[in-house]
Design a protein around this nucleic acid. Structure first.
Lengths: 213, 213, 213, 213
DNA sequence: ACTTAACCGAGACGGTACGTCCTGTCTTTTC
DNA sequence: GAAAAGACAGGACGTACCGTCTCGGTTAAGT
């Protein structure tokens, strides 16, 4: 896996059971004690593993945690192949964003995700790995849904889809991470509506006239 | 100051020189060594202060850092009383966001701000202090500018200004913190335009006519 | 104390209870687990002390052990002010050497003393401290007894007392440390007699004629 | 070889080149880094050998070192078949002891021999092996020389030769190991003279008349 | 002016975790 | 089937900081 290859280590001889025990322990521990109090020693102890086995394969606790997420996302196999596409973009986006809110709010994932997010904020290398291995696939799904909407005339033809995604998901993530306000389904809905319509007034006959086509 | 009042401490007898030395040292050190390697001992040593003097007045290194920002924002006196208001909302927002991009990109502030942001992400109490003391005043300025635009008919009448602010600034902060892409003036411009116009197509004769720019 | 002064440490603030707990624990542990398995961590744990408190004041576990002996020899206060002097040198030496044999054989002291002896063998600095603080006082007592005998005409006038002491105690220590043979009271007696008379034949009328004078 | 036989190992298939490489590396390393920092891993690495090959054949690093000495003493072939015997015991002993002093003082052998000596002090099993395989042959040579002197009337008839040997060599070894004083040829001479004549005064006409030299 | 109480610098202390090194065992692959 | 290679669980190393705790020495109040 991307982040774990170290110079001297011979991956062929690697013990898979230890690897999984480490990642599982790391994920559980970060839930229980928080990221700051997550220690390599603690992970090793819970995993029944020598510390060296962790240091041999990962450069930092952030990297361990990242791989823990990676394992989860691979094990939680299947991964929805696509975002819902009922033809009603606004409704679909609301569905997806409400799900995101639910996940970010879930106490099982809140701490671990904050941990990953803040670690990424401080470690550009980890950030790159995150973008490539975890974020890119998700972004691709989102892009597909937006492209579909664009073809259906529900989005502006000249719209930059990357900016569009930032506009839709950025406010959510920001509010979650910085706690700048309550993170609710209602907020998600509002972000969807507002970003779709824009901040400016729309002409009376309404820009969303075509919605639901 | 909000975060520093402790039960037993008598603020009247407090030594102002030590206070400033601590905050300055903290801010400098976080630039030099990063937040993770920022230590109370290091701050105390550089400030020429006993550790106890720090522990007496602040509950955590995050709180010290927060006060360091507070001091900076108070010393960087004046604080623009308002955001620019030329009557052209789009241009004004671009100006402001470009400035934000410049600040976030400035190597002197990048690390310290990341430190503060991630500390906030893990410490709700600190987050509350941040919202009240640093974020709220800024938000008020933004709200005023938007309200002015709203009155001028440049923003939808029923627009929720808080959501609007999230829509404008969220993508920027998110991209900065998560490094999901390059943070440039051009990006700032695009975010402004897109959020104002919304993602949907605008009817040709529609609204403020500039759509598609 | 000679060995414990470190560059940065401020001895005035030193905690005496911790110091004694460390030395006591070290001495007990070396009896129980042997010198090789004696660890700084173990000493710290048993003494209820942080490891740093040991590293702050002693450069090595050998130095700790040395101070443990020093403490013992100072606490076991009084220290015989002189070796027995009945006028009969041979008898007195036998008494003393038998006592030495008993001490070296005592399971409470055997391991700790071996530990000290072998540590001295590898650490010239510690050896110097040993010579000055533990060995010298003992040697002075021995020298006094021998000088008394010399004045009484029981020892050769031109005898080098240092060599004499080596001749008497060297074989004993060597046999103990190297286990080159059983270490018994009988052996002690033989060493005394033989060293006093020398290896060569004595003239028939016997050199020990004057003994008991 | 005595110490290396293990239960499961089949000595017949053993690779002689590895064995010699291990012993040579061990001897060299102990010179370079000292006994305390001598490690099995280090020996294996320098010998270009797997750790298991060492663990298969030796029970401890002390045993390896012991065999290294054994190899040396066998390779340093020939082994003087006897100690010098010019008829003048005193002169011969001085010759031998001066040689011993030179060897113990030789920086190439000092550390390794200290290592062996101190290891023996802590490991009775190793001590036994040492006595049988390295010490006994040497002692036999010494005994022969002394017996010859005894027959010539230069030593007391009733002298216990083992005690005699302890008396002659003990002081030397002790001074070397414990660094209780400078180890010189002059000291060796003095030990010989004093032990031969004994500590007591000799009657003027007495014995071999040389007393007082 | 004289206590007196808190602040302050300094830094020792009991702890925890770090990241490294080595132990002795095990497994895989090569000869 | 011994040997080179090296991963592994375990544990000690010596260091860095944590947060608490004295210890003098200022430094302002309150008498």
């Amino acid at each position: 896996m991307t982040t774990e290859r170290r110079a001297t280590a011979n991956a062929a001889r690697r013990k898979e059971t230890s690897r999984r025990a480490i990642l599982t322990s790391a994920f559980e521990l970060v839930q229980e004690v928080g990221y700051v109090k997550l220690t390599i020693e603690g992970i090793a102890a819970r995993a029944g593993v020598g510390k060296q086995t962790i240091y041999r394969w990962w450069p930092s606790k952030g990297a361990v945690l990242f791989d823990a997420f990676l394992m989860l996302s691979e094990d939680g196999a299947g991964e929805p192949a696509a975002l819902p596409d009922t033809g009603d973009l606004e409704a679909d986006l609301k569905t997806v964003l409400r799900a995101t809110v639910a996940e970010l709010t879930d106490p099982r994932y809140d701490e671990p995700m904050r941990a990953l997010a803040t670690e990424i904020a401080h470690d550009p290398e980890l950030a790159a790995a995150y973008l490539e291995r975890l974020d890119a696939p998700l972004k691709e799904l989102k892009r597909q849904r937006l492209r579909s909407a664009q073809r259906a005339g529900q989005l502006a033809d000249d719209l930059d889809l990357d900016v569009a995604m930032d506009l839709i998901w950025g406010p959510l993530l920001n509010r979650w991470l910085q706690r700048t306000g309550p993170l609710t389904a209602e907020y998600a809905d509002r972000v969807v509506t507002t970003s779709l319509n824009g901040l400016r007034p729309r002409s009376p006959e309404g820009g969303s006239a075509r919605a639901g086509a």
